[in-house]
Amino acid sequence: MNEIILKLKSIYDKYKIIIILAGSILLLLVPVIFPKSYIMGIICRILLYIILAGGLNVINGYSSQFCIGYAGFFCIGAYTEAILALRLKINFWLLLPIAGIVTAIAGLLICLPTLKLKGKYLALVTLGFSEIVRLIALNWSSLTGGPMGLKGIPVPKIFGIEFKNSLSYYYIFLFLVAIFLFVTRRVINSRIGRAWMSIREDEQAARSLGVDTSMYKALNFMYGAFWAGIAGAAYAPYTRYIDSTFFTLDEGFNILSMAIIGGMGTLIGPVAGSIVVNLLTELLRPISEYRLVAYAILIIAMMWLRPQGLFGASKSILAGKEIVKKARKAEKEAAA
């Protein structure tokens, strides 16, 4: 696996400009190539989940905090967009960043109490949080429509073009994915990304080097939540109807599966994860009740065989198997 990745990388480095150009043209032409709305629907899902799994990966993969209830943030983003669009008739393009910021603030509120604790507490708190958010969405009928949900969410418009179906909405998702990857890549390759990774690898050492770990963990969590909010805000006008059943814990596990299976700690991992898991979902449609069973088995298999995931950071603490091997070797050497 590692060799394949290296080879692909060297090919990419060689023909970088050509590949990027050809790739972008191909991506822009996708709706022309697949004019069927069924296939475009799947592709839109893949793009949406690239943002979701990718945002989750920034939290779980780069700073090794552990968020499980990511669906809660997705939910906040979607409801923020839907409520503000329906009630105050605010423009979709303005609502995207608003929903992102609202969700990031929610993320901050959730991670503040757990900053001093180990990551595993955060994991369970996010799970509880996700349930609370869903329960509020289900029960606060006057605001969220309760079990009836919110209907008739207005579609985005720009220059007189209406993004009414998956063929046109594809461009919105593509645009967001491109921005997400571009921005995240830059953040990761800066002092901020390095601070996150130093926390992942050894928090105590990071602190001894002057990294304010609490602040960076909070920032990391907010960044991840922000993109869940963006994804939610893009999703609500896509389906034009949302209710609380879209945002269950299973949805959170669905996103988590993509990040874990595709691989954490790299940008490409969640992209691969979203493609693999969404295609698998389509394959398993005839036996759709086994869908999550299949993901579960894949997750366990991944942890047994390749804990960093398919395209995850093999040079990181996420690739725990090699660490164990090395520890055993060192022990043997010490004994000899």
Partner: peptide, 9 residues
């Protein structure tokens, strides 16, 4: 640190 705390990876 006595027990070296480098970022091994």
């Amino acid at each position: 640190f006595q027990n070296i705390k480098l970022f091994n990876y």
